[in-house]
Write a protein that binds this DNA or RNA. Sequence first.
DNA 1: CCTACCGATCGGTAGG
DNA 2: CCTACCGATCGGTAGG
Lengths: 211, 211
Amino acid sequence: MDRRTEIMTVAGRLFSESGYHVTSMRDLAKAVNLQGGSLYAHIASKEEILFEIVSHAADLFLAGAAAVPPDLPPAERVARLVEAHLAVIAREIGNATVFFHEWRFLSPERKAQIQERRDAYEAYFARAIADGVEAGVFRVEDPRLATLFVLSALNWTYQWYDPAGPIPPDEFARQYAAMVLGALGADLPLTPGPSPTRGQGRSTEHAGGAA
Amino acid sequence: MDRRTEIMTVAGRLFSESGYHVTSMRDLAKAVNLQGGSLYAHIASKEEILFEIVSHAADLFLAGAAAVPPDLPPAERVARLVEAHLAVIAREIGNATVFFHEWRFLSPERKAQIQERRDAYEAYFARAIADGVEAGVFRVEDPRLATLFVLSALNWTYQWYDPAGPIPPDEFARQYAAMVLGALGADLPLTPGPSPTRGQGRSTEHAGGAA
DNA sequence: CCTACCGATCGGTAGG
DNA sequence: CCTACCGATCGGTAGG
């Protein structure tokens, strides 16, 4: 990993832990064993670092959605989109946090660039949901609101999901996808047989964040 | 509205628009027609302002949940909790934004105080969901994960919901509650008869944010 | 509630 | 990549 990449990686961690504005260039420099001014031999500005982190995360989300075959049946497509989204969060929770939490501090031009990719990403979900409604497998009143509902449920997960916690990422994604499909009015898609005792009571100890 | 209240109100707007750290005390002073130092005749510190805003929002959420009769059937209780949550966001979107976005910048003691209320709030949802599972009206694998799913779908709405937009708050809440109940595996609770043309296509023009 | 000011720290640069 | 430094701005205070 070259110096520049190291700076980006460490910055992703610091920005996600303390916030973009609270993290100073000197904090970052110290974390990579440099003097404050030396960072500028590798990067042009603090905002450039933020942009690279956010842009990288946006690309990961977009690539994940693009990898879902568009000819799959809508319900399966939605499930795959959900899984892809959560896989990105599980793998790069720090960068994902910066993506969701700090992107608004980008310059107008850079923010617009990210907005485009967010729109494109949202469109994958909107299409899958619209297809499902058309095919009669989803029952929603307003597809646009349903899309925002699904994305909301996904986007907030960076606030509380701990990939190292008790729920392994793919089990997490499986259950989450089932709930998303339920929200879309699909009839009990992948729910495993009637074993209502499964997982019960197991307070999974994820502490605060969501609420 | 006395001076102090005015400061809090304006600060809520500024913090939500630009972020807590980007908004300087001088920005705030100017917005209420004071000199920078004069703010300190009314408040002790910048963080005190943040705390009052966050604390106020936490109280609103908690009061909304507490007002839902605990003896209601679980499905209706969840629907009411969802509606109460969205009502707070519709009414105080600025303070709600600060609550969700900036609370982590509070001092450890104050953060802990807010965390307590968030936990109490979450417990309302956890209880309603647990009751529904027990009663057999909800079908979820892991009640804790289901609770986090529901709260995620709700918590993110401050990012994109516009109370002045095309979807009026109570219509918004009604549809949102239906999707939440669907996610919990309740059998098609309040879905109005088969009128799949309703609301269709109406791209509700909420622009980015969610994605 | 204002004027004037405090020390600290910020992102960034020059020159080597 | 370091040393030394820049102007700007920060939250907050003293004294009136």
